[in-house]
Design a protein around this nucleic acid. Sequence first.
DNA 1: CTAATTCTCTACTAAGTAAATAGAGATAAT
DNA 2: ATTATCTCTATTTACTTAGTAGAGAATTAG
Lengths: 153, 153
Amino acid sequence: MKLSVRGEYALRALLVLGLSYDREVVRIQTISDQQNIPKRFLEQILTDLKTLGVVESRRGASGGYRLARPPEFVTLAAVIRHIEGPLAPVSCVSERFYEKCSCPDESKCAIRSVMKEVRDAIVKILENVSLAQLCERVKLLQGEHANPLDYII
Amino acid sequence: MKLSVRGEYALRALLVLGLSYDREVVRIQTISDQQNIPKRFLEQILTDLKTLGVVESRRGASGGYRLARPPEFVTLAAVIRHIEGPLAPVSCVSERFYEKCSCPDESKCAIRSVMKEVRDAIVKILENVSLAQLCERVKLLQGEHANPLDYII
DNA sequence: CTAATTCTCTACTAAGTAAATAGAGATAAT
DNA sequence: ATTATCTCTATTTACTTAGTAGAGAATTAG
């Protein structure tokens, strides 16, 4: 039932970019230093988030990454699904990553019915928290600052 | 965010034992056949559930396994925690398996605050579903039968 | 009391995944 | 041109998962 380190890094990186939205691009190195994420590993993760269409990059000197769309339109559910796969605890109750399970009759499986409740609870939360809301939480938890890069995530 | 196969087998096996509660012990072989779980693997899992105190065994001919206490007092949360570890998506929000995470200040971490909500939602469901309730669901989903071993789990 | 049955204990293994690490290449700014 | 930055492809190391194996100990039926 765990989020991988990769997934956590992805969220942390996106939060940095979210707090810098409307500003210049942010370098991998900056995010890496600030969040204590191995640079080459973060590189992979950001490339991956690019294929999801949630970030875009500029190359060369003064290059870097930024959000490809407003943080309001990026849900945690979408990010975690892209990085980790299904949100559901068993894939036989997943909507987007459904896989048949080994039990004799899914429609009559009691375990499945509980797991469906768990899935729904998880999805309900993660679908309804956007990157923008996550940024709001940072500000609430830490009070307002001048520079978004001051935020401790 | 996934339940392992091991965890799923544990629940399936316990459900079989739950449906046979108050009757004779059930052999590993029977559970293995009925649930299509590799026998030697199931063996390990049942031994593990014994250390949790949720099942007990009798050896020798006409030996087997049964629940060590009434199914009302076995929650899915306890079983899954024992087999899988933390229910929380990140261990920095786990009550029983807490581990410090790599972010600079946990108390001000926005991601953590969302994950705490997810944890609470999962725990709320799994703490409140007992094996007895799971058995009830089986009967509801399948209608009443004479022999508990007829149930398709 | 012996044979059959069933659980028990310890160890091993094969495949897959997670978390990096590495090197050479492409692009853009100065 | 040089430097800074992203990009692409591969490799590595450690760990975890799922399963297998064999010999041993307890219990019951005959």
